[in-house]
């Protein structure tokens, strides 16, 4: 199986996951990088994404697996694809995979938190997120549970970026159980309404395995 590492930034961050699959599929055709199709009644190109990216979130660490249908040196693939991709999506590496996506356990997120009518102090937010516990009402599909999500935060740093803007860098658990950036914001709001931002902008920075080694 081959894998690409790519970025999704700028206007492209509003492309939904489903649309991204279509966009990638067409980009491979435009780039003349043929990929294998699934067998069966309704064959479609075989493509697997590591972690679906929510609409509106940027990322510099997206991974996608595929199978080449022709013998093509993998190191030529990024340049070929980049000529065929829309603005904001850029392939930075292509290689043969060794690790499975299920081994991704942690994810670094950068979040810009905007406070429209107040200035906040970064220390307070940092204390909240690095305390002993961070208990929240977590909604699942069927029910709501009260859980301590503090163990799902492995590292955290807060900086004051501008007046009314805090930049949060945080390592969050993925898989089961996971803490999504949106849930983190919700946890902040539930525990300290003062720190609930009026708007949050997210960016994925890096993926890790269970031992905090960068995942590729």
């Amino acid at each position: 199986m081959s894998r690409i590492l790519f970025k999704k930034e700028g206007r492209a961050k509003f492309i939904s996951h489903l649309d991204l699959m279509r966009t990638m599929q067409r980009a491979f055709i435009r780039a003349k990088v043929p990929i294998k199709h699934t067998e069966g009644f309704n064959p479609h190109p075989y493509m697997v994404f590591a972690l679906p990216l929510p609409v509106g979130t940027e990322s510099v660490c997206e991974l996608m697996d595929f199978k080449l249908a022709e013998d093509l040196p993998l190191d030529t693939v990024p340049a070929l694809l980049n000529r065929a991709l829309p603005e904001g999506i850029e392939v930075t590496e292509a290689y043969e995979e060794t690790y499975k996506f299920k081994d991704i356990k942690w994810l670094d997120i950068e979040a810009d938190l905007f406070y429209d009518s107040k200035d906040t102090d970064e220390g307070g937010l940092l204390r909240l997120l690095t305390g002993d516990k961070l208990v929240m009402e977590k909604k699942t599909k069927r029910s709501t549970a009260t859980v301590d999500v503090r163990p799902l935060i492995a590292a955290c740093d807060v900086k004051r970026a501008d007046e009314g803007v805090l930049t949060l860098r945080v390592r969050l658990a993925v898989g089961d159980p996971a803490l999504s950036p949106a849930q983190l914001i919700s946890a902040i709001g539930q525990n300290a309404p003062f720190f609930a931002p009026d708007f949050a902008r997210f960016r994925r920075l890096e993926l890790y395995d269970k031992d905090f080694h960068v995942f590729r």
Binding site: G10, A12, F14, I15, R26, A27, A84, L85, G88
Partner: peptide
């Protein structure tokens, strides 16, 4: 939102 952003191929 993608219908309001432009930036298509």
């Amino acid at each position: 939102p993608a219908r309001y952003t432009g930036g298509e191929y």
